[in-house]
């Protein structure tokens, strides 16, 4: 006998035990009695389309045992809305659960549904930031944060400062770079054209260049720089002087960043008569600075119509 079968509150429900499909199910889970019983009652209430307080308790029990149970989460949300429950209370309960199950996806989708319905995001950005203390790259949490920004129009508030804070903590956190890009460009989808005037461009270029200065072999700000010039419609060559601080064909022995060399190769390729120089940069990457990607560098040469060279030849030159 278990918690539910002994409870008079549940006496009217005929539990639906697990159908294993046959006598020898594959990868059958030896459920604990508690889990099996709770799921049996869950199946029964779902089959009866029951939305009630006792269903909320049941879902809470199940989520506690299996937080990845998407069916139970979705049914809980339906029940809460059906009963017109106090969603603030739900958020409080969620806060505890989220901290226990950091990487769980369902919890964030559920939070999304609740906060959307509440139509109020008070305290949300603070809570999200708290989540980042433990895992600053949690994909679901960053996705949720983006949703908050869009849903509640937080573009102009403190999001930019927030990304700066996160990147001060870890300048290699690519999720934070992605969020920054979203804050600067995300409104395009809503018809607000990203205003890439000179001021904004300079601000963002300086921000990324400063990060490169600290960590030249950090791919995130290099990706960001390339994206700015492409989106703002500025020639790639505008980054040449900057890239040459970290890689130069004149000083092939003291390249400080493979990403700078890669960028230079693209810049040379766009220059008139620059193909050979581009080829040299790509050879240098293949032979010395990034040999794990030697096939890719050779492919890039072939795109320029250049023959591939042997590593020996490059080193000798």
């Amino acid at each position: 006998m278990g918690k539910y079968s002994e409870d008079p509150l549940w006496a009217d429900i005929e539990p639906l035990p697990t159908d294993e499909g046959g006598p020898n199910p594959l990868a059958a889970i030896a459920y604990s009695e508690e889990y099996e019983e709770t799921m049996s009652y869950m199946r029964a209430v779902m089959a009866a389309n029951e939305y009630s307080d006792r269903v909320l308790e049941l879902t809470e029990d199940l989520i506690d045992m299996n937080p990845a149970h998407y069916t139970v989460w979705l049914y809980r949300a339906k029940t809460l809305f059906h009963l017109d429950k106090d969603l603030r209370e739900e958020l409080e309960w969620l806060n505890e659960t989220a901290l226990e199950h950091q990487k769980n996806y369902q919890i964030w989708h559920h939070r999304n549904l609740i906060v959307d319905r509440l139509d109020d995001c008070e305290g949300e950005t603070e809570f999200v930031e708290q989540m980042f203390v433990k895992d600053a790259k949690n994909y679901h949490v960053w996705s949720y944060r983006q949703w908050l920004v869009k849903r509640f129009g937080l573009w102009e508030t403190e999001e930019l400062e927030f990304t700066e804070r996160m990147l001060r903590e870890d300048v290699r956190n690519n999720s934070a770079w992605n969020h920054r890009w979203y804050i600067v460009n995300g409104r395009e989808a809503e018809g607000v054209k990203g205003e890439w005037d000179e001021g904004l461009r300079k601000r963002e270029l300086d921000f990324a260049k400063n990060a490169v200065g600290k960590t030249p072999q950090n791919q995130s700000p290099w990706n960001y720089l390339r994206a700015i010039v492409r989106t703002a419609g500025v020639p790639l060559a505008s980054l040449k002087e900057f890239a040459e601080q970290y890689a130069s064909l004149d000083r092939p022995d003291s390249v400080r960043s493979s990403f700078a060399l890669d960028l230079l190769a693209d810049i040379f390729a766009e220059e008139e008569g620059g193909k050979d120089k581009a080829g040299k940069a790509l050879d240098l990457l293949a032979a010395k600075y990034d040999p794990i990607r030697k096939n890719y560098w050779a492919y890039r040469k072939s795109q320029l119509g250049l023959e591939s060279s042997t590593p020996e030849a490059v080193v000798a030159a």
Binding site: I29, A30, Y31, S32, Y35, M39, M65, N66, A68, Y70
Partner: peptide, 8 residues
């Protein structure tokens, strides 16, 4: 039993 966490 701990695989109940993979029940879904």
């Amino acid at each position: 039993a701990p695989y109940a966490a993979m029940d879904a």
